[in-house]
Structures are given as structure tokens and as C-alpha cells.
């Protein structure tokens, strides 16, 4: 149960981080700062990738529950 909790918290934290990064993308666009916008875009994609992993660990996504994870 502990690892489920850790995964859940990680998803929440990463989702929060993604929200900040999305704001940074908009900020970069407003300021015409393409490095900021691009960097935030890259970071948000990485964050989504890691969220995908934790969702899988929580059993929310993924092909089957039968597998050892």
C-alpha cells in the first residue's frame, strides 16, 4: 500500500508541476522568450511521461492487470 501512496503523491506533485510549466509556456509566449517557452514545453512532456509511468504503477493505465510490475 505504501508504494501506491508514493505513486499517487508523485502523480499529484507532477501534475502540479505540469500546471506551473504550462503557465511558463504561456509566459514565454507573452514575453517572446522562446528559450523559456521551449524549455517549459520539453519539461512538461517529460513530466507527462513520468506521470504515465506512475499511472501505470497505480494500475490506471496499461494493457492488463495480470502482469508483474
Amino acid at each position: 500500500m505504501g508504494s501506491r501512496r508514493v505513486s499517487f503523491l508523485a502523480v499529484v506533485a507532477l501534475a502540479g508541476l505540469s500546471l506551473v510549466l504550462a503557465a511558463l509556456i504561456i509566459l514565454g509566449e507573452v514575453l517572446d522568450n522562446y528559450a523559456l517557452g521551449g524549455g517549459a514545453l520539453g519539461a512538461i512532456l517529460v513530466a507527462y511521461g513520468v506521470i504515465g509511468l506512475f499511472l501505470r504503477k497505480l494500475g490506471i493505465t496499461g494493457p492488463r492487470g495480470a502482469e508483474r510490475s
Partner: peptide, 11 residues
Amino acid sequence: TTLGLITLLAA
């Protein structure tokens, strides 16, 4: 993840 890392490195 990989697309994000590529974009991050590019920026």
C-alpha cells in the same frame, strides 16, 4: 519522455 528531453536540450 524522449520528445521532452529532446525539446529540453534544444531549448
